[in-house]
Nucleic acid binder design. Structure first.
Lengths: 338, 338
DNA sequence: CTCGGTTCAGATATCGATTTCTAGCCTATC
DNA sequence: GATAGGCTAGAAATCGATATCTGAACCGAG
C-alpha cells in the first residue's frame, strides 16, 4: 500500500535535523527544543509522514496484532463473536488478523502456526479441535486463549460458557413444563460443546427424562434431516445443538404438520438474532458473545503481559423461554394425535 | 507470540556458517555447498527455526497481507463475503487483516488509514461510504477494491452486482405475477445498493407498477417496524432491502394475520442461507458472494502487481422465486379482506 | 575564571532477514 | 606457468524506526 511512503529520514532531511530527533520530537518522549519540534512537525505534516509499523514491529519485537481463528464466519454466532473480540482489540490498539479454518480441522494446527508468527497472541474459536492437537498447540504457541470450549487440564486459558450446566438448566425448565421425552439433535462431531450438551442430556435421565440423541451437524439441512429420526422416538420436545439446526427442525416439523409447541416443543442454543423473530419465537440458551469476546481479549492481553491468568473463565448463559416451548402433551393426547 | 524464537544468527552459529549462507541455503536461491546446506538444515530443524516474517516484511517492503473492511460481521451476508475473500487470499499466500467499521461511517476513513499502513491492499465492503470520502480514500490508499457497490467515475475498481438491473429484474417477475402495487422497505440510508434498488423501484412506475418506499434500516426490527406504514399503501407485494429486513416483515405480517403470499407477497435481496428455510421460503435475489470475493481478490492482486484492471466488474445476481411470492390478489378479493 | 553537572542533538547500534559487495580459491586456457 | 574467469562464502549494507552512547554547549557554583 502507499507505494512510496515518506520515511523518517525524509522528514529528517526536510526538517534539517537528525532522524533521532525526528523520532523524539514526534513521540514527545524526551525534551526537544520547541523550535525543532515545530520544524519536525511541519515537515511531517507536509510530507504526510506516519511511522512504518513494520519497522516499529521489528524494533519493538511485537506486532500489536492478535489473531483470531474461527471455523465458520457464515454462522452469525461466530460473526458476532469475532466482532466482539475484534472491537475489544481495536479499543486496546491492537489489530486483528483473521484465519478462517474452514471445514478441515486437520489444517487448523498448520494455520495456527502461520498465524502465530505474525501476532502477539491468538484467540481460538475452535470447538472441534482434538485434545491432542490442542495440547500440542498450547505447547507451540503460547499466548493462546480458547473460546467456545472450556479445556480443563490442557493448559490453555479458556473463556466459555459451561455448556453442561446450561444445558442442564434448559432441560430442568423443560422438565417443569412436563416434558419427559426429549430428543437432542447433535452438533458437529468433535465439538466440545456438543459433547457437553449431549452429556447433560444423557445425565438428565437421572431425574426421569427419557432422552435420545440423533445425529445433526452444522447446517440448516442437517437439522432438517434429523427430524424424521427424532420423531420416531415420539418426543415431546426436540432440543437442537444450535439455532441454525433448529431452523431446519422448524421447517421439517412444519412440513409434517407437527405444530410447535402444541405437538412438539423446540429449543436450542446460541440465541442468534433471528431466533427471536422466527415463528414461533425460538426458545434458546443465549450465550453472552460480547462478554466472551471481551473476557477472552482481556485474558489474552494479560497473558501477553505475562501476568497470571485463571485457567478457565466460566460464564453463564441464560435460558430464554419463548413461544416454541410449551407444556408437554399428555400421553393420551399424544396418542390420539398419531 | 513465541517468546524467544531462534533467529537466523542462532542457526548460523550452530551450523558454523555465516548468516548469509543460512539464508541462501534455506531458500535454495543460489548454489551452496551441499555439505553446508545439510548442516544449515539440520541446525534449523533442531532449533525449530522459521524466519521472522516481520523482518522479511521490512526487507521486502511488502507485508503479504490484505485488509478487509466490513460494516457488520453479524450479518451473515458479510460473513460469507469475508470468508470468500479471506480464502482466496490464503490461497495466494496472503494473510487477512480485518477491520469491522461498525455503525459509524465517519470513522471509516480513519480506520482505513490505520489498516492501509499494514497491508499491501484493501478490499472495502463499505456500501454506505459517501462519495466524497470514497474518492478521498481512493487518493490516499491506492491498491483498493470496492465490493457491494459499483462506483463509476470515482476511480476505484469495484466488483459488485448491478443492483439497479437486478432489482428491475425482480420487479419484472413480480409484474408478470400480476402485482401492480409494491412497497419497498429501504435499507441503510447512505447505502449505494439501497439507492440503486430504490431507483429501480421508482423507475418501474414506467411500466405501470405503483410504488412506494418506506424507511427500513439494517436490523430485523427495522423491517418489523416498517410494516404498518407499508400496509397503508395497500400493496400486493412488499420488497425488502435485504433478507434480514424481510424476516422482520414476515413477523409483523404474521402478527397482523396477513398471509404470505396469499394476501401479500414478500421478496428481498441477498439469499442468506436462512432464506430458503423460512416459512414460506423467501423469494430473494441471490448475489454471488463467492464469485464477488474471488473476483475482488483477483482484481486486488492485479492492482498490487500494478497491472491494468477494468474499473468495474459487474456481476449478475439471480432471482430465486420461492413460496413467499404468488399471484397478486385481484382488487375485489383484496377489498373483502379488509 | 575554571570545573563539575546538566541538557540536548547527532551519531551509532539494534531488531532479523536478505542482498550486494568482495575476497579467495579453483580451473581452464594460452 | 601465469593470468583471466567463474564460484562460493563471508563481510557489510540495507529496510525504517528507536534506544543508547557520545560530545558539545551552557549553566551555576566555588
Amino acid at each position: 500500500m502507499a507505494n512510496r511512503k515518506p520515511t523518517i529520514s525524509d522528514v529528517a532531511r526536510v526538517a534539517q535535523v537528525s532522524e533521532a530527533t525526528v523520532s523524539r520530537a514526534l513521540r514527545g518522549i524526551q525534551s526537544v527544543d520547541p523550535i525543532l519540534v515545530a520544524r519536525v512537525e511541519a515537515a511531517a505534516e507536509r510530507l504526510g509522514y506516519t511511522p512504518n509499523p513494520v519497522a516499529q514491529d521489528l524494533r519493538f519485537g511485537s506486532s500489536r496484532a492478535i489473531g483470531i481463528m474461527v471455523p465458520d464466519l457464515a454462522n452469525p454466532y461466530f460473526g458476532r463473536l469475532v466482532r466482539a473480540i475484534s472491537r475489544a482489540a481495536t479499543a486496546k490498539g491492537y489489530r486483528t488478523l483473521l484465519s478462517d479454518t474452514g471445514e478441515n480441522p486437520d489444517e487448523e494446527l498448520g494455520a495456527l502456526g502461520t498465524l502465530a508468527r505474525h501476532v502477539d497472541g491468538v484467540v481460538m474459536c475452535s470447538p472441534r479441535m482434538s485434545d491432542s492437537n490442542l495440547s500440542q498447540a498450547a505447547k507451540l504457541f503460547q499466548p493462546l486463549v480458547m473460546t467456545a470450549r472450556l479445556s480443563r487440564g490442557v493448559g490453555i486459558t479458556s473463556v466459555a460458557v459451561d455448556s453442561y450446566r446450561d444445558c442442564g438448566e434448559l432441560i430442568g425448565q423443560l422438565h417443569k413444563l412436563g416434558h419427559r421425552r426429549l430428543v437432542f439433535v447433535s452438533g458437529p462431531e468433535h465439538s466440545w460443546q456438543n459433547a457437553e450438551r449431549a452429556r447433560a442430556v444423557i445425565d438428565s435421565g437421572a431425574f426421569g427424562m427419557h432422552c435420545d440423541v440423533v445425529a445433526g451437524g452444522t447446517e440448516i439441512v442437517d437439522g432438517y434431516k434429523a427430524v424424521d429420526l427424532a420423531l420416531e422416538a415420539n418426543p415431546t420436545v426436540i432440543v437442537a445443538f444450535n439455532d441454525i439446526l433448529a431452523i431446519g427442525v422448524y421447517e421439517a416439523l412444519r412440513e409434517r404438520g407437527v405444530a410447535i409447541p402444541r405437538d412438539v416443543s423446540v429449543a436450542s442454543f446460541d440465541d442468534i438474532s433471528i431466533a427471536a423473530h422466527l415463528t414461533p419465537a425460538l426458545t434458546t440458551v443465549r450465550s453472552p458473545r460480547e462478554e466472551i469476546g471481551q473476557r477472552a481479549l482481556d485474558a489474552l492481553m494479560a497473558l501477553i503481559k505475562e501476568e497470571e491468568v485463571p485457567a478457565t473463565h466460566s460464564l453463564t448463559a441464560e435460558v430464554v423461554m419463548r413461544e416454541s416451548t410449551g407444556p408437554a402433551l399428555q400421553i393420551d393426547e399424544q396418542s390420539t394425535r398419531l
